[in-house]
Design a protein around this nucleic acid. Structure first.
Lengths: 221, 221
DNA sequence: AAGTTCGGAGAACGGTTGTTTACTGGATGA
DNA sequence: TCATCCAGTAAACAACCGTTCTCCGAACTT
């Protein structure tokens, strides 16, 4: 036994991962569209031409990075959604998880924040698609909560997108705050994030009174 | 009369503006850190070396672009804040103004969205600083509104940042939606933005009931 | 009218880029 | 054991990059 995958493929995936890691590191202070193929291979310690054994071009590597980065984030979101706490505690937990995730995978966060609107189309689309799936998942979870009784699907979806967007934005802001040196900056971001989520939560609880109550069903078209 | 500025300086600022325009155009499908000096001068029709007569490097040009892009946005924000409508109408107006601005200065929006977390530190900081000034201005305006009675300065500031962030995000999303081809995508973004602002507005109206009333003051220090 | 300033041109530099082509040597499967 | 596969190598390619240095000529100053 024990040669389930083969020495060959194992080694290949190892250098492939090395390429991804090296690229991610270099992307801390660059954007993908300015990252050179040679730069990455040089850091890994292989010949430039070996790059093509793994990716057609840097864009393809970028898409692979998206999957890796959003993959870990996906776990994080699931963990949050699984909680069944009251609103207030859930907010604290959510922010805490974001905080921890930023400290654990800072390069992933930076990459996603940077390339979400970056210069490589394929990567933008990959991120957008992944975040869209997040929103859908969040929407499904929100729907099961009693607060969402009587909500239209569009409204739930709107709220989910607001949440997802806030998560990403908060993570990016937290990362910026941590590296810019100011002492209390990170804590200020965290407190702000909590308050913003709380405000959204309050808006959510009173939504049907005036927002969705009267005009939602018989709206435009 | 009529030679108030001098032919010399006028011509200089003219090619300087040409450099900015050309760069902005090229940045529609690139990010700043991958934009070459020669690329820009080539498009303007001047020698590469002439670039240095106007900017030390691309980063400096980027900062100039930030001022230009956020300058027009500043006018927009002021216009919104000047309104005295009721909450509902104000939301519609706000979104409409954002919509119009995106159609009028799409390249500015794209640039800000892309370089806000981009690979050039000086540009990021310039954008962050400008958005910070926006938030402060919005906060000052919010404070004068009756709804904000009894709010702490921190809470007002938090709300202001939430609004500013939403404006930028909405503008970027709208731009993406418009160019990605889907017919109803742009309208969907607009409707979503309106609903999100409405939800925030509702949360704002009920904030003091549970958010700032009981436990806020007794928190940290 | 003479002298100075300065935006822009031109050539040249060392260096880096992406990509192609041909080749090597160890893991792989018959 | 032997033929095959294939990740990685090495060299060479033309193209482009940012930057320096020298010079020009028209706009300015006096």
């Amino acid at each position: 036994m024990s040669h389930t995958v083969g020495v060959r493929q194992a080694q290949k995936q190892k250098t492939r991962q090395a390429l991804l890691d090296a690229a991610l590191g270099l992307l801390e202070e660059q954007s993908l569209s300015s990252l050179g193929l040679r730069e990455v291979t040089r850091m890994v310690g292989i010949a430039p031409t070996a790059f093509y054994r793994h990716f057609r071009d840097m864009g393809e590597l970028g898409v692979a990075l998206v999957e890796e980065a959003l993959g870990s984030l996906h776990v994080m979101v699931r963990a949050i959604l699984a909680e069944q706490d009251a609103a207030e505690e859930r907010i604290d937990r959510t922010v805490a998880v974001v905080e921890q995730h930023v400290r654990q995978y800072p390069l992933h966060i930076r990459f996603v924040a940077r390339e979400r609107h970056g210069g490589v189309r394929a990567v933008r689309q990959a991120i957008a698609g992944e975040l869209d799936r997040f929103a859908e998942e969040v929407a499904a979870a929100l729907k099961t909560q009693p607060v969402s009784a009587g909500w239209g699907d569009d409204d739930v979806r709107m709220l989910a997108e607001l949440y997802v967007d806030r998560l990403v934005t908060t993570a990016a802001a937290l990362l910026d705050a941590e590296e810019d040196g100011a002492e209390g900056a990170a804590e200020r971001v965290v407190r702000n994030a909590r308050r913003q989520l709380r405000l959204i939560s309050i808006g959510r609880q009173h939504w049907r009174e005036e927002g969705g109550g009267g005009g939602a069903g018989g709206g435009g078209e």
